[in-house]
Simulated assay, not measured.
Amino acid sequence: MTSVLVLGGYGAVGAHVVKRLRADGADALAAGRDPARADRVVDLTDPRSLGSGLDGVSAVVNCSGSEEPAVAAAVAGNGIPFVDITATSGYAKQLERVDGPVLLGVGIAPGLSSLLAAEAARAGGTVDVLIGLGAGEAHGPAATAWTYGLLGKRFDDPDGSRVRNYTRPTRFDLPAEAGYPRFPALRTDFADQHRLTADLGVPVRTYLRLDSRLATLGLAALTWAPRIAALIPAGGMPGGDGWVIAARGGDGRSWWATGRVQSRATAEVAAQAVRRMLQSPITAPTWLHQAASLDELRPALEAAGIALGTG
């Protein structure tokens, strides 16, 4: 039986990944520091702990929120595929330099968003990618830290300019299935937009909005005063758990996906990515859109309750 070690395997996303892999017949092992919840006790700050945790493992999925390239290098250096769900641009660039099998951008954004963008790019011209997330979902601490960590920071646009996160509002036509009210999305630095721009040969720009207008406007305001974010009380924001991704090509046509519970959808994409990677091994850092297509993953995604369409 194939053994897959899931770092952060009892967290918001990791628990779903473990469950999904086990449903596929894999021996999924939840890894973490808590012996009461972990199948294998692994402390990512202790190289010896990580080394022993890899015994008999065919692949590792990082859902821990830890963005330490040395961990990826230690795993991939042993010839074990390392799958990462991160959306952070700087960390993704570090993973691209790791020597060994690393699969990047595995989730709904990056991940499913990249597959949709690849379809939209066939029309030529700029591809604009919207990621809509449910503000009311109980996201893990890593996802929350990522969202607030972008406040006030800038990134490179395909035209060479510098863009501040959560600015430049842009409207998208979203599928009725998403149930999202109509209001603008904000430019946001998802890691795959840079790789996609290079790979697809067209400018790719990513945007974020939440299903709550108030929560989205809050990000737009906080990006000009990021220190205030530390004063926001812990807990969920007003909103639901529905998510939507839409990639709009140069001809105005959009490719979209929508569903409920972002963490569960991320786990579905991750599980399918692990399956494909074990069937068709990689030897160097690879992005999901370089290893698979939307049509190849479509049957499994739709079976998991993810709606896909064009319009």
Rank of each mutant, 00 (worst) to 15 (best):
L54K: 01
A59S: 04
A59G: 02
N62H: 01
S64K: 00
S66Q: 03
S66I: 10
S66G: 03
E67P: 03
E68F: 01
E68A: 11
P69F: 13
P69M: 14
A70G: 10
V71N: 14
A72D: 14
A72K: 03
A72Y: 08
V75C: 04
V75D: 10
A76D: 11
A76S: 15
G77P: 02
G79R: 01
P81V: 12
P81T: 09
P81N: 06
F82L: 10
T86W: 00
A87T: 00
A87L: 02
S89H: 12
Y91G: 02
E96Q: 15
E96W: 08
V98A: 05
D99R: 13
G100V: 04
V102I: 10
V102L: 12
V102R: 11
V102C: 11
L103S: 02
L104N: 10
L104E: 05
L104P: 02
V106Y: 08
I108K: 07
I108F: 06
I108H: 06
A109W: 11
P110Q: 12
P110V: 14
G111V: 08
G111A: 12
G111Q: 09
L112P: 05
L115S: 08
L115M: 09
L116F: 08
A117E: 02
R122T: 13
G124H: 15
G125H: 14
T126H: 12
V127S: 03
D128Q: 13
D128F: 09
V129T: 08
L130Q: 10
L130T: 07
I131P: 01
G132E: 14
G132C: 15
L133G: 14
A135S: 15
E137H: 09
H139I: 11
P141H: 07
A143V: 12
T144G: 13
Y148T: 14
L150E: 07
L150D: 01
L151N: 11
L151K: 06
K153E: 09
R154A: 11
